[in-house]
Simulated scan of single mutants.
Amino acid sequence: MQDLTERRRAAFELLGFGALALGLRIAFDPLFWRFAGPVSLVTTLACLALYLRRRDEGWASLGLIHLGTARSRLMVLPKALLVFVFFAIAVAATLFAAEVLGWTFMKVIPAGVEDRWGDVEGNLPLLLLWLGIVWTAAAFGEEMFVRGFLVTRSLTLFRGVPFAAVFAVLLPALLFGFGHAYYQGLRGLVTVTAIGIAFGAAFLVLKRNLWPIVLVHGIVDSINFVTLYLGVERQSPVG
């Protein structure tokens, strides 16, 4: 009975906070399209933090574990390397599948990417603004919500179901990809979903430790924004 109650609560939380994040993004979209995603995510996290506090549950239970010793902090780096390997495999597999299946849309930069980030090139203040967003709303925010909250609650929801871990990684990854499709198109949906699967799998392999994933997410997006600033290439950051 208790297990059924926990699964029902997990389903309620997934639907409730998923709908809140999507609804806020839609509401903010006409006001500030470029920043609707980050602002809606931060607002959702604020509501989630209040909810977790009422349940006497902290972010440590969702993956932001306390790194109390020097050894635990140093171990973040080799674990981050493992996360990067997962990330690289996901990107390589996506590119390979695109070639084999003839997905020509994967070779076209969506118009939304240019509209959102096209003026970063040569604009240092704008670069610094986006880097700030990368390390708050993207690296920390998305990982806390998508991996820390959605994956954890999905594990509860699918408890006892065959391949529960697979579903618990796949469902949040699909939501992660869908959340980027509004400006990255089908290419973003496919690529970001694959990255979401890689990050979700790494989250479970690392026993729900978010810190290495946050680090890799932030570094990858930061590199992409610096290349945009330098005019080297037009790539879409993860977040």
Results as ranks from 00 to 15, higher is better:
3 D>C: 03
202 A>M: 06
123 N>T: 11
142 E>F: 12
101 L>F: 15
112 G>Y: 12
191 T>C: 00
138 A>F: 13
122 G>I: 08
197 I>F: 14
117 W>Y: 15
135 W>F: 14
101 L>A: 15
52 L>E: 04
206 L>M: 08
190 V>M: 02
238 V>M: 09
173 A>C: 09
170 L>C: 02
169 V>M: 03
239 G>Q: 10
137 A>V: 06
217 H>G: 01
105 F>A: 04
25 R>G: 10
157 L>I: 02
143 E>Q: 13
197 I>H: 06
161 V>H: 08
179 G>Y: 03
170 L>R: 00
20 L>H: 02
10 A>N: 05
66 H>P: 08
220 V>A: 12
77 L>D: 02
192 V>E: 12
214 V>M: 14
63 G>K: 02
190 V>W: 08
62 L>M: 13
50 L>D: 08
124 L>K: 13
119 D>Q: 15
225 F>Y: 15
128 L>H: 09
38 P>N: 03
16 G>T: 07
201 A>Q: 02
81 L>C: 11
142 E>H: 12
8 R>M: 11
218 G>D: 13
5 T>A: 11
158 F>E: 01
113 V>E: 13
59 W>G: 07
43 T>R: 00
23 G>S: 04
146 V>T: 12
182 Y>V: 06
206 L>C: 12
98 A>Q: 11
18 G>A: 06
95 L>F: 09
190 V>Q: 01
130 W>S: 00
223 I>K: 10
184 Q>A: 08
215 L>M: 15
116 R>V: 06
79 K>G: 05
11 A>Q: 07
115 D>F: 12
5 T>R: 15
56 D>R: 15
155 L>D: 01
211 W>C: 08
108 V>R: 12
12 F>M: 14
78 P>W: 10
224 N>A: 13
170 L>W: 11
158 F>D: 01
131 L>H: 04
12 F>R: 15
100 V>P: 07
194 A>E: 06
161 V>S: 04
90 A>D: 06
68 G>T: 05
48 L>I: 12
147 R>M: 05
76 V>T: 14
222 S>G: 11
210 L>P: 03
2 Q>M: 10
164 A>F: 07
178 F>G: 10
18 G>Q: 13
174 L>R: 03
100 V>G: 06
